[in-house]
Structures are given as C-alpha cells and as structure tokens.
C-alpha cells in the first residue's frame, strides 16, 4: 500500500518535471560543486541570466570535486529531462564525452564553463584563462620578493584542469622569466582548510628561508595564511579567488593580493551563450570571462565589488 502511494507520487513528480520543462526553455547547468563560495557565485550569475533571458535555469553539482561518477549521473539525469541546452563544468572531460555525443545527436547544444572539454562538441567554453591568470600571479610574486629567493606553491589538487593549469601557469612563468627564484615545494591540500594549514606549516618548517607562498585556490590560500600566522613568519602570500577570510587578509596586509576570476560572469555568460546558440547565433570557441589582480590599493574600486564574493 505504502509503496504504491509512494510510487504514484514519484510518477506524478516526474511527469510534472518533464511537463514543466516542456513549457519554457530549460537549461540545466552541471557544475563541479555547489558548496564552495565560487560555485555559489557562478550560480548567482546563471540565475541572473535566467531572469534576464526568461529561461529556466537549474544549477547542481557533486559534493566534492573528486566525484566524477556523481557528476556523470547528474549529467545523465539532466539529459533525460530533454533540455533545450546544457551547461557543463566537467570534472573529468574525457569521462563525459559519451554523454556529450548523445546530447549532440539529440541536437542539444552544450556550453562548457569554467574548464574546457577535450572535444569539439561544446559550441563554446566560458572560462577563465587559468594559465594566464597564474602567470600574472607569478609576475606579482616576483615583483614583491624582489626577483630572487625561495618560494612554494600550495595547490588544491594535481588532477583537475584548474589545478594543473594554475600550477603550470605559475611554474612556467617563474622558470621562463625569473631565473633567480627557486620553487622549493609544490604540494596538494585538497582544498581542505585544516589539512592545507598543517601542510603549509611543514613546508615552511623545511624551508626556513621561504620568501613567498602561492595558494592556488581559496582553501589553499587560507591554509597558507593560517600557517604563516601560526608560525609568525614573514612570507609574501598570494591567493586565488575571493571569500571573506581572503579579502580580510588582503585588507589587513597579511596577504599581498590575489587573483580573482569572474564567477558571476562565468555563470551569466554560460546561460547567455546557451540562449544565443538556441537562436542559431555563431559563437567564438572560447569566451574569456576574465580575471583580475586585486590588492589593498584597488579592491574597493566599484568594478571589483561584484567579483569579490564573500
């Protein structure tokens, strides 16, 4: 009895969902996560665009950036609802390709966002140029420590596209332009604040002469910041992304500055691109959503306000 009732409710729900979807233009966005502040900002931008262009936008993502399988499940479920277009920030771009081919066959345009997909299927990719952004961080670091000395990098992980690009963008720029700067450590803290803190402390312990430390995402940057505070050392810290703690640290001078992407813009541009694709407009292969350096001198400028989320 009970089961039957439950089943009936489920069927109704599913019918309702498909029905509702059929009425308006429906664009699901599958992100890499949703807990993180960054993704909340992307979501905000996407929803804004949904209102502006009068389309229904949904936003979901797995709990952690390691859950490739969960993301594939979400993508499968989203495609089953027969959307008009779909947005995807792939955790593992190769794993998603079979599903993307299905979408292509069904005539559903795919917009990649945040990180690219190694395939021609997406009509466009709305992303930050992470390599260029990290290279900018490297230039700033070099300037701040006077072009020579030991520095270290703390990255969130060694397998994701953003992790690899930010690490390589930073490392390659240092190697190419600043021969007197030595990168003594590259470690990975999984974006976990506590683990990143302990990790950064050990690295500083091993390298008493460390002059600079780059944290390649919010969790990593906060880890470095905590470590420097706890060890009471003088180290130039450069962060990435925003968030209240990072902003406060920049404001107090503990952090020299950070790179910010434009997460709201990423969300907005993704939906906008989807709408354009549905109208049959031609889109460029890559839509650069931009990045900026912020520090104490410019962070209160009005153009930064929407970029520096809490």
């Amino acid at each position: 009895m009970k089961n039957k009732k439950l089943f009936a409710v489920l069927v109704l729900l599913i019918m309702f969902a498909t029905f509702a979807g059929a009425q308006t233009i429906y664009i699901p966005l599958i992100s890499k996560g949703f807990q993180h502040q960054f993704w909340q900002a992307v979501k905000m931008g996407a929803e804004q665009a949904g209102r502006d262009f009068k389309v229904t936008v949904t936003f979901e993502g797995p709990e952690s950036e390691a859950m490739v399988d969960k993301q594939i499940d979400m993508l499968t479920a989203a495609l089953a609802k027969k959307p008009q277009a779909i947005g995807l920030a792939a955790l593992d771009s190769k794993a998603a390709i079979p599903l993307l081919k299905k979408a292509q066959a069904a005539g559903i345009p795919v917009i990649a966002f945040d990180s690219g997909v190694d395939s021609d299927i997406p009509v466009t990719t709305c992303t930050t140029d992470n390599i260029a952004a990290a290279a900018l961080a490297a230039d700033r670091m070099a300037a701040l420590i006077g072009g020579k000395g030991d520095i270290a990098i703390l990255v969130h992980d060694q397998t994701s596209r953003t992790g690899i690009d930010r690490r390589d963008g930073f490392v390659n720029r240092i190697k190419a332009k600043y021969p007197n700067i030595k990168i003594v450590s590259i470690q990975y803290g999984g974006g976990d604040h506590l683990k990143s803190t302990d990790l950064a402390k050990a690295v500083m312990q091993a390298n008493p002469n460390l002059k600079g430390y780059f944290g390649a995402n919010e969790g990593s940057a906060i880890g470095v910041l905590n470590a420097v505070r706890e060890m009471k050392r003088k180290v130039v810290i450069i962060g990435y992304d925003a968030g209240k703690q990072q902003k406060d640290a920049v404001r107090s001078g503990e952090m020299a500055g950070a790179i910010t992407q434009n997460p709201v813009g990423i969300g907005y541009r993704t939906v906008e691109a989807a709408v354009k694709a549905l109208k049959g407009e031609k889109l460029p292969k890559i839509i650069d959503t931009g990045f900026l350096w912020y520090d104490l001198s410019n962070m209160d400028n009005p153009e930064f306000i929407p970029l520096l989320y809490d």
């Binding site: 506590l194 302990d198 050990a202 312990q205 706890e230």
Partner: peptide
C-alpha cells in the same frame, strides 16, 4: 634526516596538527 624537524616550533606544530 633533517635539522628542521626536531625543533621546538615543529614539535608544537605536530601536536597542534594531532589535536583534532
């Protein structure tokens, strides 16, 4: 293995990272 390990501040770091 390393002179940086057995130092007062590192021992305290270890204790702190063990606490949680």
């Amino acid at each position: 293995a390393t002179p940086n390990f057995f130092r007062v501040d590192n021992m305290i770091s270890i204790m702190l990272s063990t606490a949680v």
